[in-house]
Design a protein around this nucleic acid. Structure first.
Lengths: 342, 342
DNA sequence: CTGAAAGCGCTAACAC
DNA sequence: GTGTTAGCGCTTTCAG
């Protein structure tokens, strides 16, 4: 491995001079600078950023920890984060917690030992508090992304789950739906809670009763609760519409419904939070509350980097509103349809 | 920052002993081991992996460089790579070249200076040879992913572009299509070349003439060549089917066709390489040659790690065959349909 | 404008 | 079983 000493020897200067050339610091005569640069090129020298990090006590590495790298929402977040990190000269260490607290913990340990300069952190849920506190204990700056965690104070970039859900459910009500189900996420995730709250508020505002039998809490990542869905569909008065708390749930539910011979939206409407990426271009089908995912990543990174570099102390909390996009998956319920036609 | 010396002092041992406890090396009495561990816990000590890397001359960091983090194919590759890296105790540095040689170069420099142990590398194209050679010069192990680069010898994990394309085009021919267009990628990308070759072979095998007017080479990442498409559609004898060289192109083309009032597959069939992730669950529409993306990432990582850890010298080349999935976007051409019905 | 010495946090090699 | 010494590649500080 070639070091600055090799360069120094060949260029007949000291290691310090080489260092100064690399970092453009201090005064150096144009002659030696040129000579050193030439030698570096000839020897294919690449500075060792690990060694640099060790003495500088900063790594120029940031970590992005997300919960599902396969979900188009987080994929786009990652793109925003990556672009922005690169623009500011940071490298990006990627972590995927899979909504799993244990994996998340492993990553936090790894992040700490890597001495990254900061973390853009999408928590798996409320129990991530332990992990976040660990970061705080080590004075490692972080920005919480997409979800907040009770008891943890930090910069945040969040959507507006309650408001988006309210609008989506009100859209269903306006279409004439009276029996609207909620398939939400685990209640230890802030967005899942807020989406349930938004749902309840919308029903209240619409003077509709809240039926606990129409409320499900399942795993965010994948819908496989066929039995629960069955039970709901076999109720005396089954739902005519379903609000799914995220895109993956919606897709799973629609697949389930279809396998039962039910059609969306003819038999039942489905709407959800978060858009579907390329799927929506091919087939604009799902009515959604689309969130500006790229900006989640971009703004999150900017807050993080700014905090690292400026040492800002006050926390900043950004809320990015969703956009309701009405498409074919939501339609009036059958009964109303018949009624209006008659 | 807490170091092993702090731990050593408090536990009344030498730094070396602490190091041995951390790494589980050498013989240590159970008593001191316990004492040291206790102190480490009390002081919230986390080893500094940078310092460790510096002396060990290996970082336990691998780099994943892909060309489009937004494409479901690479997203799934990333998931396979990430899972596997984690399983073997490696961290993952993420890079996104955007099919851009300059960005790719920036990442290669960054990778080199980070002293990662290896790279899983999806090259932007043939001109990535420079970058790959740079890696070789520095003896940095890498595995080429998805695309090969002429003149570069290394482990590879590739699909079978020619064969997949041949099958897809033969499927179109079997449906009765005689005028089949190719919308392919830039010819400095190995998969784009092979897909064009497969296309030509299929036509030859089907005794169909090759019409250069039906062959387009555009940017892989996004279809925005409306004028070229227009020209093709206005030919005296326009295509009744289009083979798109990847998923994003297919989606772009379908959107374009629809904006012209053309329906897929009623007016024109479209098939492509690579599936669409969640989009295919929601709406199984596109006929595709689906590649096992997760395995691209998983096997690529395994080859890389094995090469790093075993020092294997011979190169290994894995080919993962695609699976043809016939769906609604391909149907017999109108004329034939009429003919068969009469 | 350039250099020498010291140290970032850790571990390999060698004592005892 | 445990400790000492030296050094990984770099930059800071202080001299000159």
């Amino acid at each position: 491995m070639i070091t600055i000493y090799d360069i120094a020897a060949k260029a007949k200067v000291s290691a310090m001079t080489v260092s100064r050339v690399i970092n453009d610091t201090g005064r150096i005569s144009e002659a030696t600078r040129k000579r050193v640069k030439k030698v570096m090129r000839e020897m294919n020298y690449v500075p060792n950023s690990m060694a640099r990090s060790l003495v500088l006590q900063k790594s120029k590495i940031l970590s992005l920890l997300i919960t599902d790298i396969t979900n188009p929402f987080y994929t786009t977040v990652a793109r925003g984060a990556e672009d922005t990190a690169k623009r500011y000269g940071y490298r990006l260490l990627l972590g995927n917690s899979d909504e799993d607290y244990q994996k998340e913990k492993d990553y936090v340990d790894m992040i700490l030992s890597t001495r990254v300069d900061g973390v853009l952190f999408a928590p798996a849920g409320d129990m991530s508090a332990d992990h976040l506190q660990q970061l705080q204990q080590h004075r490692l700056p972080f920005v919480m992304l997409d979800r907040e965690v009770p008891g943890i104070q930090s910069d945040t970039v969040l959507g507006d789950s309650k408001e988006g859900t309210r609008q989506l459910v009100q859209h269903l009500i306006a279409l004439g739906h009276r029996r609207i189900a909620l398939v939400g996420g685990s209640q230890d995730i802030s967005t899942a809670r807020l989406r349930q709250t938004g749902y309840r508020e919308a029903l209240l505002l619409g003077n509709l009763p809240i039926d606990e039998e129409l409320i499900l809490s399942v795993n965010y990542r994948e819908f496989r609760d066929e039995a629960l869905l069955d039970r709901m569909l076999e109720l005396e008065s089954p739902p005519t519409a379903i609000f799914a708390a995220n895109n993956f749930l919606a897709v799973g539910i629609i697949a389930s419904l279809r396998s039962r011979g039910l059609s969306v939206p003819d038999d039942i409407s489905v709407v959800c939070f978060d858009d579907l990426g390329i799927a929506s271009v091919l087939d604009p089908f799902l009515t959604v509350a689309a969130q500006p995912a790229y900006q989640f990543g971009e703004i999150g990174m900017q807050l993080l980097i700014e905090r690292i570099e400026s040492g800002r102390e006050e926390t900043r909390n950004v809320i990015l509103p969703p956009e309701i996009i009405v498409r074919r998956s939501s339609a009036p319920p059958r009964t109303v349809e018949r009624y209006e036609r008659s």
